[in-house]
Design a binder for these strands. Structure first.
Lengths: 197, 197, 197, 197
DNA sequence: GATGAATGAGCTTTCATTCAT
DNA sequence: GATGAATGAAAGCTCATTCAT
């Protein structure tokens, strides 16, 4: 390669452009300009516009999964684990607003224009939550009646929607850390076994 | 009658088509065919493609707000109110899958392609939740430390994400009613004041 | 239709443009401009660029087949029939130079870019020749040893190549009528049974 | 040795690729891959894509002319000469199908995309035929009324079209040798002077 | 001489929107 | 009010050609 890694430059440019205009309104030439490469160069690294989005997804969520798993491994208390997950997710959204916007937006519509695409990376990420619940249930910390499959979605949805609107609105009367704390506290005290409180 | 006129026919057709293909991939001619009118007729009722989406939004969420407010008014216990909201939201998503998909998808990207559009109807809907929290706090049922602005988003997000994936996946090992119950229970027991439990 | 038949206008424009630039170098916008319609209008009448070429082929060769069959029907002597076919073919190439060029060029390469396309109209045209030979053989005018399948191709090839180059070169020391006469005479005297001469 | 150098390798690769896809659909990278050289290497030997085609033409037809002239020189009877020409041409098309396809296809359209290019090699090849006719006329074997300029085209066209379709269709009920014999016989007996038969 | 990554002009096709009927 | 044929701008993608290594 002549200069730096073109693949990464294009992915980063795509995040910026998709965040700014959305996937459909973004033009290949926008991404090319942002990445400071020629339009055609993009097609040396990606098959088509969808492929950029999918690659972006897989790679970025892949990184996030690695990070969050590493952090959670260090803990043994399932309650703390949930707190860490929440905090990490929210901070990520704050630190990487553009990426956050792209993930949130395109996640919801990806199934519309890519019927065949199974978003396995996303599933893997959310399954980190259900694994924590499972562990907590086995340890007798969380209620046995709880459905981990429902919980993971609810917990993720709560975090995601809160961060989504936090990122959107310009003024906040609470920090992202406070919001993460509130949400994980609500969920944790909402699912603990009776004798614990 | 309203439902038989062209305006409603087009909105309904748009819900079906947007749900099937997404806003960007949907063609005006698709909507026209679905509504059994000519392409040009659509422009007698709407300014452009975006205008269909916005009108759809406003009208459909407007109906939902009316319904849920009516149901909640009959209750006085804030906990019951949250349960009703959750159940109503989830049942809605189940009963009107197409509408659900459109609202969920396009909600997330609407700010991308309609920079100027303030989604006041959506805010009004979510504010139903924060009003319940507020009431609960004043009555001493819910913790005072709770931020209603965070709660409304977390609660809505939990319901929305759970129903989104419930609609997507073909087989479920739980009903929508069970999921609604679980989620509202988690949230309610998670926010109640200490002396209540 | 607002004005005259767009379909025919586009076909005629395509003949002119394909003759001038060849199929591949011809742009849709060239054809549109020549036909005095918008680029998009072409796609209301044809699926794509190839479809224009195929339609052109089918329709124009269809007309030619009708004409030549009508002329030949009036004759009973197979030798005269061959003369008429030759003359008609050559005059056609002279009168409709653009069409001639397109047919000659694209005929040869059509199998390259349209693998699936069976050029049945062309086969039908050439089979007019073999039918004449067959008749002549049954009447004892033409040699029985003659293979009609070889003859039809040789006769057509002779006419086509001669007219191709006649159209290309600016100055001729013979007329198209003379050339047609020479060729049909050569072939006829070349295939007659011994006792006839 | 010539055949091992890059120039020849590229020409041979181009014949294969042009035969398979046609000139316009063929990509430089296809030829490069077939020739086992880098894309850029092609431009060390040829000015551009057209230049490959023209070089291919000149060189390959040049070889064919040399061969056929050598064979014909050994004969003195103009009739035999025509037979040899026909047989040689047809066998060539059979033995070198790829080259045959390229010559037949691109010959017809070369004038479209290379306005300035005078195909002198092709003219030289066809003039071998007219030279035979001329000789035959002077020797009193062929009719004086025959126009050699018409004959050469008709004869070439007959051979070329017959071989073109022979190569295309997968099953034949005659051999290429039989076809060559039929065609040269028809033409020869069609042009002999009266007193000869 | 050889390479192949990078370029960017160019073209087919789509589709929201218009407007004559 | 209703129609749908016509428009033409816009964009994804291709590929001949270049040139730094």
């Amino acid at each position: 390669m002549r200069t730096s890694d073109k693949h990464s430059k294009i992915i980063e440019a795509a995040i910026t452009v998709f965040a700014r205009k959305g996937f459909f309104s973004a033009r290949i030439s926008d991404i090319a300009k942002e990445a400071q490469v020629a339009d055609g160069t993009i097609y040396l690294y990606f098959n088509n516009k969808y492929d950029i989005l999918i690659s972006l997804f897989e790679e970025e969520i892949g990184k996030i999964i690695l990070q969050v798993k590493l952090l959670i491994e260090k803990e043994s208390d399932p309650r703390k684990m949930l707190q860490i997950f929440a905090l990490h997710h929210m901070q990520l959204m704050e630190e990487q607003k553009e990426l956050a916007e792209v993930l949130q937006m395109e996640l919801r519509q990806s199934n519309k224009f890519m019927k065949e695409y199974r978003n396995t990376k996303f599933i893997e990420y959310v399954d980190v939550i259900s694994a924590i619940i499972h562990k907590g249930q086995q340890e007798g910390v969380f209620r046995k009646t709880l459905l981990p499959g429902v919980f993971k979605r609810a917990f993720f949805g709560a975090l995601d929607e809160t961060s989504r609107l936090w990122v959107l609105s310009p003024d906040h009367n609470y920090t992202i850390v406070e919001a993460a704390k509130q949400i994980s506290d609500i969920f944790i005290s909402g699912i603990m076994t009776e004798n614990q409180s």
